[in-house]
Design a protein around this nucleic acid. Structure first.
Length: 427
DNA sequence: TCTGGGGTCCTAGGACCC
DNA sequence: TCTGGGGTCCTAGGACCC
């Protein structure tokens, strides 16, 4: 027997997280907005039915929203990340082989545990029921012999009520499978993006079935090895393995648009120091060190009539480091090198990389510095306190205190599950 | 006025090595 | 008839994902 993959995906994840703590929102049309309240990034089914598209700029549909009583919430990533972790811990109880694919999706490789649950459909229903009971979140589950087919099964489960939230593709009769594939547009396939769709259509490939039946070699010569694999995956030949060991990131980026335009070096410095600290925290979390820091600033590219200054600088470090103070210092030095007065900056960011594991570090021959024990202990202390009291609670003075440049979030709900002072109250 | 923030992989071409 | 034959590393750009 070959592999069997399950894809578990939370429906309208951000919206569903908000509803868990405000049940009165159930059935109410609502969206969750991106950072700075710019775009709609999650929509309830009711909002979708009013024609609110994914990624639409919120000001463009604000009138429509007012008209229909569509509510809008700012992103509450602290809450969503915590809810995501809870879902994953439940999945790990069902099956040890879990790949956390995104904040709201996980792959499971289940063929070895299937016997414990009485088959795919039963396993899927148990997963769905337990996540609903223990977290309040609704999920759909799709099963397939490849990850691409599990994704497709999940899509079908989500769109078609007759599946009751669980679709077992291998359990369908061959005729039914062909029929579903023929009725599903090729753009729904995982790995087929907006650039590829028109090219495929020009070749007469419009549905999932068309792509499955296309000759893989021809697909490879036209599109490359990635889409060839997709083609094989649709035929049931597993080309993509479960990646259950979380690979260390190869680069870490932290960047934000500002809530308003920023012109002074002082304010840019606060932002860059803040982002560098946040990136350094992520770096230490995965046990890596960075050999260099890239810092960049951008003006508003949507206003070409204004003077543009989109520049960055790569600052090599004398030794790889995971120390917030060193990384921030390098980033700030880079910023001073690229900053020009007279521009209205809209965004800044910090990228750490190339990264290497801290454990395998080789001491430099010429640049050997004594191991910074005090620095290590300081970073440990900062991380411990911030884990306990919330990210950014303890930070360097360079990050500033006023921070009027911070992004807008006009309607953010409390961080119900991670902050003592924001616990939900029941009266 | 308003425009998110992260990531990954593959390919092609050039520089350079013996 | 002849223009060698392998390699690696790096970068930029393009595509994709959520």
């Amino acid at each position: 027997m070959g592999p069997l993959f399950a894809l578990v995906d939370v429906n309208n994840f951000y919206v569903s997280c908000e509803r868990v703590f405000q049940p009165r929102l159930e059935g109410v049309p609502m969206v969750v907005l991106s950072n700075n309240d710019g775009c709609a990034v999650a929509r309830s089914n009711e909002a979708k039915s009013f024609g609110i598209r994914m990624g639409v700029r919120w000001f463009k549909v604000r009138d429509l929203a007012r008209q229909h009583g569509i509510l809008a919430f700012s992103s509450n990533y602290t809450l969503y990340a915590d809810m995501s972790n809870r879902v994953v811990s439940i999945l790990r109880e069902f099956c040890p082989d879990v790949e956390v694919y995104s904040i709201d999706e996980s792959f499971l490789q289940v063929e070895a545990v299937l016997g414990l649950y009485g088959g795919p459909l039963s396993l899927g229903q148990q997963i769905k029921a337990r996540i609903r009971d223990w977290t309040g979140l609704p999920v759909c589950v799709g099963f397939g012999p490849t990850k691409t087919l599990a994704k497709l099964a999940n899509h079908l489960a989500k769109k078609n009520p007759e599946f009751n939230g669980v679709c077992d593709l291998p359990g369908l009769p061959e005729v039914a499978l062909r029929d579903w594939m023929a009725r599903t547009a090729v753009e729904e396939v995982w790995g087929v993006g907006p650039r590829t769709v028109p090219k495929l259509e020009a070749m007469g490939i419009r549905t999932v079935l068309d792509l499955r039946n296309a000759p893989p070699k021809a697909i490879r010569s036209r599109f490359g090895v990635v889409l060839e694999r997709t083609c094989y995956e649709l035929r049931g030949v597993s080309c993509l393995a479960l990646e259950d060991a979380v690979a260390a990131r190869q680069q870490i980026m932290v960047s934000r648009s500002f809530g308003r335009t920023v012109t002074t070096l002082e304010e840019l410095s606060e932002a860059v120091a803040t982002y560098a600290a946040s990136a350094a925290e992520k770096l230490r979390e995965q046990g890596s060190e960075a050999a260099a820091v890239h810092v960049f600033v951008l003006t508003n590219r949507f206003r070409p009539e204004e003077p543009q200054n989109n520049v960055g600088r790569l600052m090599a470090l004398p030794d790889p480091s995971d120390d917030t103070l060193r990384l921030a210092k390098a980033a700030l030095a880079g910023l001073r090198g690229i900053y020009r007065p007279g521009f209205a900056y809209k965004k800044a960011g910090v990228i750490l990389g190339p990264l290497s594991p801290k454990a395998g570090r080789q001491q430099g021959l010429l640049t050997d510095t004594p191991v910074g024990v005090r620095g290590e202990r300081l970073m440990d202390t900062i991380d411990t306190l911030n884990r306990r009291f919330g990210r950014g609670r303890l930070r360097t003075g360079a990050s500033g205190t006023g921070r009027s440049w911070a992004m807008r979030a006009g309607n953010r709900t409390p961080r119900y599950t991670t902050h003592w002072e924001e616990l939900p109250a029941i009266s």
